[in-house]
Write a protein that binds this DNA or RNA. Structure first.
Lengths: 332, 332
DNA sequence: CGACAATTTGCAACCGGTTGCAAAAAATTC
DNA sequence: GAATTTTTTGCAACCGGTTGCAAATTGTCG
């Protein structure tokens, strides 16, 4: 059915090795045989079987891309950049949707069966041990959007969530808000924990400012809306740092629905700068994650680790910045 | 490095075939040897190499998932459902990001190299010939969100875009709009062409209604905004059928920015019902594509075609329905 | 033109599995 | 317990490639 090396070899009147060599970068083949082989291959429409060759070379050029954030709009951009970035380097993303389960064993097993060259765990909610499971299985791995650690066991690329929390606090302080709050995502998400830490840390130096915290059940529109609706009934703060943009939009919607104005009555600052944040009918002031840089570094790091397996685990954090839009009152 | 059949065989004191058979559904192995093999495998942490076995079985359980819609929020849902649906059947999605290029040759080549069992082309903008290229290469393929055809060459699953256009027209007519327009996506997108066809078809029976058409340069927020801004300066219609939800939000934003009200001054109806359409600060009236059904059928069809290669090309269309929200005036 | 070095080529073994076939072992029958 | 049938097992070839090695070819130089 499919055309193999042998077919091409026969047609070109050379050995199978000669054919293999014409298709291998930097192998020794004369001009003449290369020409013969290429002609025969073109005539037959031959293309080498990447999987068969992976058996001997030990490289599949397959990269496992594991995520559980299939509902966060930011991840459209993330998938776009990852797939493009990998393709540009001749790598193929094998997508794994984690959905509910958080046990790494199954994913590790599966990706081992497919002999992926490396894996990228793209998630801000999974614990570091998830990515570590890949490392333990001998699969080069990078945790993108993962938690910062001073002594990481695996490569981590992302933002400093503590610093981001601090940045949010400082932004609110600078605008003169006196009663502020953090509306986090799920309490067990590492990103929420760290952002809370930074937020409260910065405010500790401002005892005159009243600060409170609450958690939404998920990084989702509905969760943000529900939580903000609840907050509005119990006497809301003047400004909220929401743990995520989608959450922010949910909160925004609850505030507007209650007949209050943003930023007049209540200020909101999000985090991520998803594409929709700039839509004029949302116009969300937020803290931007440099997604492209994070993904570029992640790919670079996973490729580097494939080439140098015992490379020391690295943490690469990229700075965030505030994107001024319309949900926070202006600087005085 | 990695544990192979041979290692397990030696440890269990059996032949390699015996080990292979224990891991093959429905092969002949006695209780006793199976137990020995399983014990040895567990002790060594063995898991069979899926790629190596694919060499003889001819099945990789890899499915190419090809898309060029990495900026449409609807596709987050699409990716989520596809990856989950494939995983549930033990299949692995190999993601291909088409971005700019529309030449199928490269994708076909690449997916052939990886011996995918089948391919799913998920795009409403690619021409039918794209999916056909896969079929011609002997790869079972389904075109999801593709163009309807009475004599299809490949399986097509999606909605009847002509009917959707008609549905939009009828919805506007029923609400008493007298000057309506279609704000399409790129003129060459098959989905836009078909939706226009249905829209104008339905209005042909209503000569009293004034109808016009224009195209946005892409299915994007910015394109919708730009085009609507232009329209507002040249005397807009009373209501617009926008070829897509993101486009609708762009248009919506332009209208609001011009100080006009929706649906008071101008009505808008979109198509897709992306997740954000229900966000209260968008609250878009739209026509819902039954995404889950489309994807379920696509997977079923590609699996069916893998099992029965010469299956006749099928077209499966699912009905859309109008989702009433706040961007169209109420029924009289 | 011959000696020698550098390139190119084919052979054969291997990567990690699967599978048809015949022999061996176990189960069934009388 | 022997004869027959059924099940289990191992051998060896194969899937589609790669690669070390030695032989064959080509090129260089005096």
């Amino acid at each position: 059915m499919a055309i193999t090396l042998k077919d091409v070899a026969e047609r070109a009147g050379v050995s199978r090795s000669a054919v293999s060599r014409t298709f291998t970068e930097g192998a020794s083949v004369s001009r003449k045989t290369r020409a013969k082989v290429e002609k025969a291959a073109a005539e037959l429409g031959y293309s080498p079987n990447a999987l068969a060759s992976s058996l001997t070379t030990g490289r599949t050029k397959l990269i496992g891309l594991i995520s559980n954030n299939f509902h966060n709009p930011l991840f459209l951009e993330v998938f776009d950049l990852f797939t493009r970035g990998l393709q540009d380097r001749g790598l193929r993303p094998l997508l794994v949707n984690l959905s509910a389960e958080t046990d790494p064993k199954q994913s590790v097993r599966m990706l081992k069966q497919y002999s992926v060259d490396g894996a990228i765990v793209a998630s801000s909610t999974l614990s570091p041990s998830f990515a570590e499971a890949f490392k333990d299985a001998g699969i080069p791995v990078v945790h993108s959007f993962g938690r910062f650690s001073t002594s990481p066991n695996v490569h981590v690329v992302g933002i400093d969530n503590v610093a981001a929390g601090r940045m949010a606090a400082e932004t609110l302080i600078a605008r003169g808000y006196r009663r502020v709050a953090f509306l986090g995502g799920p309490e067990q998400a590492t990103s929420t924990q760290d952002r809370a830490l930074g937020f409260f840390g910065a405010l500790r130096e401002h005892p005159e400012i009243d600060v409170s915290i609450s958690y939404a059940s998920a990084y989702s529109f509905d969760a943000g809306r529900v939580e903000m609706t609840r907050l509005l009934m119990t006497g809301p703060a003047e400004a909220y740092f929401c743990g995520d943009d989608v959450l922010s939009v949910g909160a925004l919607s609850a505030v507007q629905e209650a007949g209050l104005s943003v930023p007049g009555d209540i200020g909101i600052i999000g985090l991520n700068d998803m594409d929709m944040a700039r839509w004029q009918n949302i116009n969300l002031t937020t803290i931007r994650q440099p997604v492209a840089e994070i993904i570029g570094a992640s790919i670079e790091l996973v490729v580097g680790t494939i080439e140098t397996p015992n490379r020391h685990p690295e943490t690469r954090l990229f700075p965030c910045r505030v994107i001024e839009r319309g949900t926070l009152r202006a600087l005085p």
